[in-house]
Design a protein around this nucleic acid. Structure first.
Lengths: 208, 208
DNA sequence: CTTTGACTAATTAATTCAAAAAGTCAGAAG
DNA sequence: CTTCTGACTTTTTGAATTAATTAGTCAAAG
């Protein structure tokens, strides 16, 4: 495939615009112009803007989840994998930061049922990936026997909570410093989380 | 004091209105009417609405912090105290739920410098109270030697993060079920947190 | 099957204006 | 002098109107 797939081109063009200006400050006409397409051409491939947004989200999510999975397979230690995950998330959310910024109008796109379903499935997938990581830790005898799905979800919710909190306080545009602060807090809590599920068979708590 | 302190009466009257309808749906005239005061009487005691709001916040915060402190002194075990704290927070945020709900206009009051300073100090105070609790745990040999201030802040940030997250998803009016869900998540994460800082001198991790 | 120019319909942004709320003040009451 | 009020002014908000932008359509052409 020499990337003549118009549909794919449109998605990529949309991502560029969305990443720069956000979903609401990007018009369908602009996306078309960038590609030297006509507007109806876009509507030939996508029924409406909402579906284009969903297609974009699908692409970015699968891209992200692939990264998460390969990261998990690369790192030998499950503890390290969980910490690395935080960097991965940071990179992703910085790269596509504008997608997170929503004025009151963008909420309509976010409240769309299909979109919410997509996000829900993405979360489920991420939870199950992390769950596998925790299972590996258990098998290696490094983690206690726990409900891995529940713990994985709790882990993600905690990370998300810290981010949302930061985003609220520094809205709408957090600076680089607050991003660093967030990263540190997330890593601290992740370390604590790891300590909390660690199996101290040797009788000594990790004091690191 | 037979509660003839007008200033105090005004604050109490404002709390009633604020708790029912929120800050923005409460007018100074209404607060005055409730108390059979004239509006200028309010302005005799408070320079403006913002300062009344700050006085209300001060009162509620000191009330809350007193509860937190007495709760901490009552419970013998530091672990239990941390878990109890979550119930305390829940009770408080349910009681004054309307104060949390802000439309776009209420943000002006929240962004006020004096108000933010107040909230910052309140957080510092709460952090130091929890820090004391952690120190007691360390002295008793139940917790590892840790930076108690840092850990206390992390603990609070995590709880807040989970709440903010829930509030976003179920905005503007979370139902009773999502409150329960939040409570459970907060307790799970608190338990994990406790496990993470526990001193397993006996060579066995708490599997509870 | 694709694509387009020229269209319509729906949304958003800007403007206006009336109503509501915040805040003021000269002076009264104790 | 301290506390309070009725009658005010100023500021803010909300609804209504309109203009402009943007989403989305369609008949027809390549």
């Amino acid at each position: 495939m020499v990337e003549t797939d118009k549909r794919e081109l449109i998605i990529k063009g949309a991502i560029k615009r969305f990443a720069h200006f956000g979903v609401n400050k990007t018009t369908m006409a602009e996306i078309a112009e960038d590609l030297s397409f006509s507007k109806p051409a876009l509507y030939y491939y996508f029924p409406d803007k909402q579906n284009l947004i969903i297609a974009v989200a699908e692409k970015l999510i699968s891209e992200y989840l692939l990264e998460v999975e390969s990261n998990l397979q690369l790192s030998a230690e499950p503890e390290a994998a969980l910490i690395d995950l935080i960097d991965l998330r940071r990179n992703f959310s910085q790269k596509y930061f504008m997608l997170y910024i929503g004025d009151e109008h963008s909420e309509a796109y976010l409240k769309n049922k299909a979109f919410k379903d997509l996000m829900r499935k993405a979360k489920e997938k991420e939870v199950s990936i992390i769950s596998v990581c925790l299972q590996k830790g258990i098998q290696k005898g490094r983690f206690k026997t726990i409900d891995t799905m529940k713990m994985a979800e709790l882990f993600l919710d905690t990370l998300k909570g810290l981010r949302v909190c930061m985003l609220m306080e520094n809205s709408p545009f957090p600076n680089a410093d607050s991003f660093e602060l967030l990263l540190n807090k997330q890593k601290e809590v992740a370390q604590l989380f790891i300590n909390g599920i660690k199996n101290y068979g040797d009788g000594r708590a990790d004091t690191k």
